[in-house]
C-alpha cells in the first residue's frame, strides 16, 4: 500500500477516531475536573486519584454485575470522596505532607480495591447485566447513545461545579489554593476547605472510574495507574489551548483538554504505537504541555533576537 492510500484510509478513519476520543474524553473529563480541583484550585499534588479511580471502577463493576448500575455510580462517588477525606485527614491531623499522604492512601487503596473486587484482579460486566449505557440505549440515537449519556452527566456536573465554585464556600475553597493565610485571616478553617475540596476531587475521579468500567464493561485493579498524569495533561492542554478565564471557560477547557488528549492518544495508536507505549506518549505530552509557557517564551525570544539581528544586518549593509 502506498503512502497516499495509507493517508487516505487514515483520513477516512478520523470521524471514527473523533467519536472514540469524544466518548472516552468526556468520561475522563470528569476525572480531569477532579484533578483540576486538587492541583489547581487547592494547589495540592494529590496522587490519591490513581487509587480512587480504580476504587470507583471496582464498586461500579461489582454493583453493576449485581444489577445496580446507577447505585454503583453513587457508591463510587461516595467511596472516592471518603478516600479524599482520608488523604486530607492524614495530611492535616497527622502532619504528613500532602504528597506523601496521598501516596500512602493510593498505596492502601490498591488492597482495598482488590477486596472490593473479591480478590479478583479484574471483573467483566457480562451481558445480560445492565450498565447505565445499556439502560439508556435508544434506537434514535444509534451509535451516539453512549456519547449523549456521558455528555448529559458531564454537563450536569460541569454546571453544578461552576455554581458551587461561585458560592460563598466555593470562594474560600478557591482562595485556599491561592493563599491559605488570607483565608484563615478571613475567619475560615482551611482544614475544612481542604478536606471538602479533596473529597469532591476524588469523588469525581471515582465517578469517572465507575463510568469507564460500565462503558467498557470491565474493571481492572490496575486501571487507575497513571491517572494523575492523564488528568493533569488534560488540565494543562486545556489551559494552553483554550485559555483560563473566566471560570466557566476554564472548566470547559479542562473538558476539551481531556478530549484532545484522547484524540492525540488515538492518533498515536493509529501511527503504529502500541498500548504498551502509551505511558511514554502520555509522559511526553505532559512534558511538552508543562513546558509550553517556557518554550513559548523561548520562541518569542528567538524571534525577537532574529528580528533585531535582521535590523542590525540592515544597518551594517
Amino acid at each position: 500500500m502506498g503512502v497516499f492510500e495509507q493517508l487516505a484510509t487514515f483520513i477516512e478513519r478520523i470521524p471514527g477516531l473523533l467519536l472514540d476520543s469524544g466518548e472516552l474524553g468526556i468520561i475522563y473529563a470528569i476525572m480531569a475536573l477532579g484533578v483540576f480541583i486538587s492541583f489547581r484550585t487547592l494547589n495540592t499534588p494529590d496522587l490519591t486519584v490513581d487509587g480512587s479511580f480504580a476504587l470507583g471502577a471496582a464498586f461500579s463493576a461489582v454493583l453493576a454485575v449485581n444489577g445496580h448500575p446507577v447505585f454503583g455510580l453513587i457508591i463510587a462517588f461516595l467511596a472516592g470522596s471518603a478516600a479524599g477525606c482520608i488523604t486530607s485527614l492524614i495530611n492535616v491531623r497527622m502532619g504528613i505532607n500532602p504528597l506523601l499522604a496521598s501516596i500512602l492512601v493510593m498505596l492502601g487503596l490498591y488492597s482495598v480495591n482488590l477486596r472490593v473486587m473479591g480478590k479478583q484482579p479484574n471483573i467483566p460486566i457480562n451481558k445480560p447485566a445492565e450498565t447505565i449505557y445499556s439502560l439508556f440505549k435508544a434506537d434514535s440515537l444509534a451509535e451516539y447513545g453512549e456519547l449523549v449519556l456521558s455528555i448529559i452527566i458531564l454537563s450536569a456536573i460541569l454546571i453544578s461545579l461552576y455554581l458551587f465554585l461561585k458560592t460563598r464556600f466555593g470562594f474560600v475553597l478557591r482562595a485556599t489554593g491561592d493563599n491559605e493565610n488570607m483565608v484563615r485571616a478571613s475567619g475560615v478553617n482551611t482544614d475544612i476547605t481542604k478536606l471538602i475540596g479533596l473529597a469532591l476531587a476524588n469523588g469525581l475521579t471515582a465517578l469517572s472510574g465507575g463510568m469507564i468500567a460500565q462503558f467498557q464493561r470491565f474493571s481492572d485493579v490496575q486501571m487507575g495507574t497513571g491517572m494523575v498524569v492523564i488528568g493533569l495533561s488534560s488540565v494543562i492542554i486545556g489551559e494552553v489551548v483554550f485559555g483560563t478565564r473566566p471560570l466557566f471557560r476554564r472548566l470547559i477547557a479542562v473538558v476539551l483538554g481531556s478530549v484532545l488528549y484522547r484524540f492525540i492518544i488515538s492518533i498515536a495508536y493509529e501511527v503504529g504505537l502500541e498500548a504498551s507505549d502509551l505511558k511514554l506518549v502520555s509522559a511526553v505530552i505532559v512534558g511538552i504541555a508543562l513546558s509550553a509557557p517556557k518554550i513559548g517564551g523561548g520562541l518569542a525570544k528567538l524571534k525577537s533576537r532574529f528580528s533585531t539581528g535582521e535590523k542590525a544586518g540592515e544597518q551594517d549593509a
Partner: peptide
C-alpha cells in the same frame, strides 16, 4: 467574615 460560608452566592 464571621458569617456562614454556605452555598449562597459568593
Amino acid at each position: 467574615k464571621g458569617r456562614s460560608r454556605n452555598l449562597k452566592p459568593g
